[in-house]
């Protein structure tokens, strides 16, 4: 599903964010990216989404070399990739329902599809009763659920999560991880960058560890260490 071949990403001022990184992630896998701040976890996610382009190496997503992708085709790539962030990135002037519907609206889904899919996904993440609430009326955990609903409503092949539990307390984090696990069981490939030791240790999934841009460990059923 995702394949990196000797990928190197250098930011301005010779800051090497990723050095000669190679990895192969199968369809339906759940992968943790771990490592200290600045080790290149977020960069790797941004490369998969084509928010950044690598200096060297190739990246394949769903069998396609995304380096070869025309700029105008990038939106269509992103429709297959859901994104979840530490700061949720919800639109504060829209309700829970509208936030999720927005994701379908901007990719041109017809109204009747939106009307059936949005309540269904909100029910799935446990927010069926909070559809008309605004983000500021929700707890952090609930806001993250909205953000996950928005990322998943289009049934993407891949879900990228950048520190999704970074702003949440341990109990709430467990709930979010259960949700991501559930999404993974539907066949969606999940790649999650995290600092959260307990989450990684409890889930026992594949762990890719980065240190200063280099992959130092790639272990199935690994722990945070």
């Amino acid at each position: 599903m995702i394949k990196l071949e000797s990928v190197t990403k250098v930011y301005k001022g010779d800051v090497v964010a990723l050095r000669d990184a190679s990895a192969d992630i199968q369809k339906g896998e759940f992968v943790f990216l771990v490592g200290p701040s600045g080790s290149g976890k977020s960069t790797m996610l941004r490369l998969l989404n084509k928010e950044e382009t690598p200096e060297h190496g190739k990246i394949f997503v769903a069998g396609k070399d995304i380096g070869e992708l025309n700029q105008w085709k990038v939106p269509y790539l992103r429709r297959n990739i859901g994104c979840v962030f530490q700061d949720f990135k919800l639109l504060t002037n829209k309700t829970v329902y509208e936030n999720v519907a927005f994701a379908l609206e901007v990719i041109g889904r017809p109204k009747h599809v939106i009307k059936t899919q949005v309540p269904a996904i909100l029910e799935l993440v446990g927010l069926g009763k909070k559809m008309i609430n605004y983000p500021h009326e929700l707890s952090g955990g609930e806001q993250q659920r909205v953000s996950i609903a928005r990322a998943f409503v289009n049934r993407p092949l891949i879900l990228l999560a950048d520190e999704p539990t970074g702003n949440l307390d341990p109990t709430t984090s467990v709930g979010i991880m259960r949700l991501l696990d559930r999404i993974n069981r539907t066949g969606t490939t999940v790649v999650m960058a995290t600092h959260d030791r307990s989450v990684v240790d409890t889930m026992r999934r594949r762990v890719i560890e980065l240190d200063r841009g280099v992959i130092v460990r790639d272990q199935s059923r690994g722990v945070y260490e």
């Binding site: 429709r79 990135k89 927005f102 901007v106 990719i107 289009n154």
Partner: peptide
């Protein structure tokens, strides 16, 4: 810009924006 950022993330085309 936040809205546009989200639009781009969920795959809205530039023309749509």
């Amino acid at each position: 810009r936040r809205e546009i950022e989200v639009m781009k993330l969920v795959g809205a085309t530039n023309w749509f924006i």
